[in-house]
Amino acid sequence: MILGKVIGNIISTERAIGYGGRTILIIQPIEPSGTFKGKTFLAVDTVQAGVGDTVITVEEGGSATTAIKEPDTHTVKTVIVGIVDHIYH
């Protein structure tokens, strides 16, 4: 699981099986201190995260499906599983 900041979202009506109707956010990976590090990626939201939130993301299919808990979402691999309140490090 990695830390990231939500820096935006995408609108998409045409989607593959398993992605229907879910918010897709743009994630910027960050270091624990908050500085941006590395390329952005997209993640399916499962916790109603918003732009500006710091979040925890998972990039593995099996875990993603358990986060979404709906049938035929085995095509989803990258999801947000938590909104971070504070990082003590």
């Binding site: 820096i7 935006g8 998409s12 045409e14 989607r15 095509t75 691999k77």
Partner: peptide, 30 residues
Amino acid sequence: TSKEASMVLDKIMNPCDAAIVGIVDEINLE
């Protein structure tokens, strides 16, 4: 990418490791 990509196909036992899963209409950046 990876195994999940191949799941978009009917025949899920296939070696595909990258699949398009959506078309972007709009990108909104903070």
